[in-house]
Amino acid sequence: MKAPAPGPSGIETHGFLGEEFLTWLWFRWESDGGEFQLPGGRVVGIAIDDFLTFAAPSDDETEQTLRHGLPTRTEEARTALRQGRRLRRARLIVAEGSRQWTVTVDGPSLQLSGAKLPEDAEETESDQDRSADRAANWLALHEIVLALYGAFLRERLDDGYLGGAGERQAQWMQA
């Protein structure tokens, strides 16, 4: 039995939206401190860590990767933003309560790579308990990214976006 042939991939048609999402996270982190109130009373903190890749503005131009230290504070990063470039990949620190993850998010695919889950809970004694705990942490990471992306989309798809939140982000990018 063969799976149905896929149509055009959402990576091809909407990959840019994942890049806008990562750039928005950076903007929200710098302008509002990176704390997000998510559905279900969830409060999570987001920060950009030590790895950034800016998308190539066109097929003829190159991606630009900054790693180690504080790449968001570098002149190269500010210049890229002033040129209207979006983040293609970013390493994030995600915190919720006492749990903390680090993960690299690929904008166009929204795939997670190089993830590190929180430490195993102290009460996990058996392999089975540990697996259950880790499975819950994988799911939590996925759901946090999904909820953040949902928050971004509600803002981005709003009628007043260009005159409101979009404009504020544009000013931040030009600063």
Binding site: L112, S113, A115, D127, R130, R134, N137, W138
Partner: peptide
Amino acid sequence: SIRRSGGAT
């Protein structure tokens, strides 16, 4: 156990 690090799709 399930691993604590790596990538996910």
